[in-house]
Design a protein around this nucleic acid. Structure first.
Lengths: 111, 111
DNA sequence: TGATATTATGTCAGATATGACATACAATCA
DNA sequence: TGATTGTATGTCATATCTGACATAATATCA
């Protein structure tokens, strides 16, 4: 039930997650890595919406493209952690904030 | 003085840092990004030495190669944040620990 | 409804990262 | 001294990521 919801979200977000497994079934490190990226994705979208920017506007600011922003925000596996973190920093986040986001991803991440 | 020491270390660590600038002179986001990667590099080396592993042994564990481990630990710019973080997780670090390391990189990072 | 704005998805050529390999350098020990 | 072990550095073919583009899907408003 919970598992299904989470799996659906993961799949929707582009992570081909095998049948009954969600975070479980992945190795702990993969699981953590994905949770981390999803947390950054969400943060990115929240920040953008907060600032009432469109993906296109943000893309200009980050010297990227609308489609890549969309992929970043939807947790597409083709997006690197490098890009996510650079974007965060470009949007003015500090290491301290990044640390908070990551620590928080611990809680939301499946038990 | 302090600046020179830090610049030397940065250059040694493979970041072509222009003449008198070290972290300063880089954009804040680049500066943060580099500080972050260096912090993870150091953590990685410390963990490995703590566990009395050689780079070759660690490489096997991470399914990488000795030379890439050396590059990771020396802060080579060719190493991605993805690889560093994945390695951390593979060595058993949690999001919480990662968050600590990142938060700490804030302090060591030039003011 | 249709027109317009925004976001999502697919594709691809060029850019960057990767493991692997060779080999140089450094340290330790006999 | 040389031999052995560990680390650093350079190169390269392959793999992965990137911005850009087209276009589909979805919203928003008249």
């Amino acid at each position: 039930m919970m598992d299904n919801v989470k799996r659906k979200r993961l799949e929707k977000e582009g992570w081909h997650v095998g049948s009954a497994e969600e975070f479980l079934g992945l190795s702990p490190e993969e699981s953590r890595f994905i949770a981390l990226k999803l947390a950054l994705s969400r943060w990115l979208r929240e920040r953008r919406e907060e600032q009432k920017l469109t993906q296109s506007q943000l893309a200009r600011e980050l010297r990227s493209s609308q489609s890549r922003i969309a992929k970043m925000e939807s947790g597409d596996p083709s997006v690197s952690l490098d890009l996510l973190v650079r974007s965060l920093f470009t949007l003015g986040a500090t290491q301290r904030e990044l640390a908070r986001i990551i620590a928080a991803s611990y809680r939301s991440h499946a038990a």
